[in-house]
Design a protein around this nucleic acid. Sequence first.
DNA 1: CCGCATCCTCATGGATACTG
DNA 2: CAGTATCCATGAGGATGCGG
Lengths: 208, 208
Amino acid sequence: MRSYGQYCGLARSLEVVGDRWNLLIVRQLLMAPARYRDLADGLPGIATNLLADRLRDLETAGVVERRLAGTGSVVEYALTPWGAELREPINGLIRWSTPLMIRGPEGDIFRLEWLVLALPALLDKRVTSRPTEAIGLAIDETTLRLRATRYGFEVGPRDERALAGTVRAEPMCILGLAAGALDFDDAAALGLIEIEGDEASVRAMFGS
Amino acid sequence: MRSYGQYCGLARSLEVVGDRWNLLIVRQLLMAPARYRDLADGLPGIATNLLADRLRDLETAGVVERRLAGTGSVVEYALTPWGAELREPINGLIRWSTPLMIRGPEGDIFRLEWLVLALPALLDKRVTSRPTEAIGLAIDETTLRLRATRYGFEVGPRDERALAGTVRAEPMCILGLAAGALDFDDAAALGLIEIEGDEASVRAMFGS
DNA sequence: CCGCATCCTCATGGATACTG
DNA sequence: CAGTATCCATGAGGATGCGG
């Protein structure tokens, strides 16, 4: 990217991460370190030369580091500590995108991992701030486990631990509830969500 | 910009503001509504056709609105309420840029208004949280007035009101102090900053 | 296969001139 | 002043090649 030539924090940031695909690469690495192939798979549409270019740029800038994974000579990419601090501005953009997301997928492809990344960003700004029971989010074939602790939100795959209640809904409804853009009772009245188990626990997470 | 085709908040945000220059246009409008010429002046290097294109895109997306300023038929651009909410992610990127900024201007042009925009973003994350006396920031020929209130930071031009103390420094030192990346005593020992008036008031703003 | 590098085409950005 | 038109340079995207 050509330099903006401005001594301004925003301009300097954008010279590092403003190029097309760059922040999406960081998004992928925020979820977990990944191999070249994982990144190419998680970024449908990126050209292989671009991915290689961008990884080099990000490594040079100090955002990403290339390292040897596990035992063998397998290359793996991970965020540096500074790179991982991009979670804050990324969370801000995720929150800002709420009006764009509640329109629904509109043909765009959907990956559950992106929702897992978005949920804490959306929920963190709603001042529940007290621990909740673990609830389940049933989306298509999968159920996620979601829980608020005193330190933040945990989102992950369902495990053997019990869930107080479960809500089944489309991704866009989950996002709407988490962002506070969709009212819990409205969603229930419209049949957009389907509750199993203890409704109060689910409402404690999303209710207004 | 070509669509990413991903139902992900970050990707959708970037389809709106990810194009080159877009966030810098928003930065300019965060400071005040502006006319076409003001924007062209505040964005050195932008081609006029690009500025026109981007303003159209941002208007279509609902980030910017075009309106008639004052009494006459003068067109003016301003952020919509949703567009103004980009301040959060922009502040995040400004904070993230600290390691890039403390290297100094390195030939990039500097505008005082960019520093005025950055200061609250940097100071907000430092948990002083209590009101301070108003102090002066002397940078080149200009002195800014800076004060913490219970609700946030006020930065603006100096007026007739008294200043408890004044600190003179290069922009990069001001940024380093505000970001917590430069220690007050170190800066003083190195002669990077020059205090007039009440040092305690200045230290209350930047001291660790 | 995985991890890129090369090649080619076409869309986009940049600089400048020009117009209502 | 507020943009458009034009032309050229650069970068994205897609296909493919190639060594380990």
